[in-house]
């Protein structure tokens, strides 16, 4: 499944970039995220609870940041094991552009699911992903406006 999108965040690019690299921000904004810890310079471990169609699963996995070109772009790549439900993996190329005081974030996502998740949920992956992306950015905007970003600096 491939998906692209664009999102405007009312905050300067530096602030957005920092948040995108902060475990606290990611933990607060990734829908269903139960835990997220930094494990290396550019790596995190995460536990995320997700529901795709009729299947609900807790994914344990690793998240890596690659192709880092601060504060403009990176690739975020992750793979999660959902136990009996199967797996989910994917990556997103994220790009930040300044636009006045705002930041325009564009992304290209590629995601794959497997096992029972695919058998039961394939037809829903696209709509679910869209929903998750929207939710993530909504959380992200709130996080930044409500001073999460301020706490970081």
């Amino acid at each position: 499944m491939d998906m692209t999108g664009e999102f405007r965040i009312s905050a300067p690019r530096d602030v957005v970039w920092q948040a995108l690299n902060s475990p606290d921000a990611l933990r607060a904004c990734i829908p269903g995220c139960e835990a997220l810890e930094k494990t290396s310079d550019n790596g995190f471990s995460a536990t995320v609870m997700q529901k795709i169609g009729p299947v609900k699963a807790r994914f344990n996995g690793e998240v890596q940041l690659e192709n880092i070109n601060a504060p403009e772009s990176y690739t975020i790549r992750g793979e999660g094991k959902g136990g009996v439900a199967g797996f989910a993996k994917g990556g997103a190329d994220v790009r930040l552009a300044e636009d006045g005081g705002d930041t325009v974030l564009t992304y290209t996502v590629n995601a794959q699911i497997g096992g029972k998740l695919a058998a039961l949920g394939s037809r829903l992956i696209e709509s679910t992903s869209k929903k998750l992306a929207a939710k993530f950015f909504e959380n992200f905007q709130t996080y930044i406006t409500e001073g999460g970003a301020g706490r970081m600096s």
């Binding site: 169609g53 794959q112 497997g114 096992g115 029972k116 695919a118 058998a119 039961l120 394939s122 037809r123």
Partner: peptide, 14 residues
């Protein structure tokens, strides 16, 4: 099956 071998018709929905 999709090209990755995932079964897409795994329930009476599909």
């Amino acid at each position: 099956y999709d090209q990755d071998g995932q079964l897409l018709t795994g329930s009476y929905m599909d």
